[in-house]
Amino acid sequence: MNRRPTLWLLLSFALVLLLAFACQQFTGAEYFIDSSSCNGCGECIRICPNDAIYYNQSGKAEIDQTKCTHCANCVAICPNNAVY
């Protein structure tokens, strides 16, 4: 195993864990979509009352944070549980 990728990987882990434990103070909600779980079915785009979700260049749904009002309808409608 090459040492340098392992080193970078460990540094990445450390950064992720650092952020996970450092950021305990919650600020207002913003919803996001896990693109690896989204199948591009478009249900969230149809259901969004504020027209705040669009397809990105990969054909996956993405939330336009300038228009989202955090109603969370997309959370319930997503068949793949990709909204968080």
Binding site: A20, A22, C23, Q24, Q25, F26, T27, A29, E30, Y31, F32, D34, S37, N81, Y84
Partner: peptide
């Protein structure tokens, strides 16, 4: 002011 917005574990 580092703040948490959302955690997601799947």
């Amino acid at each position: 002011n580092l703040r948490l917005m959302a955690n997601y574990l799947r």
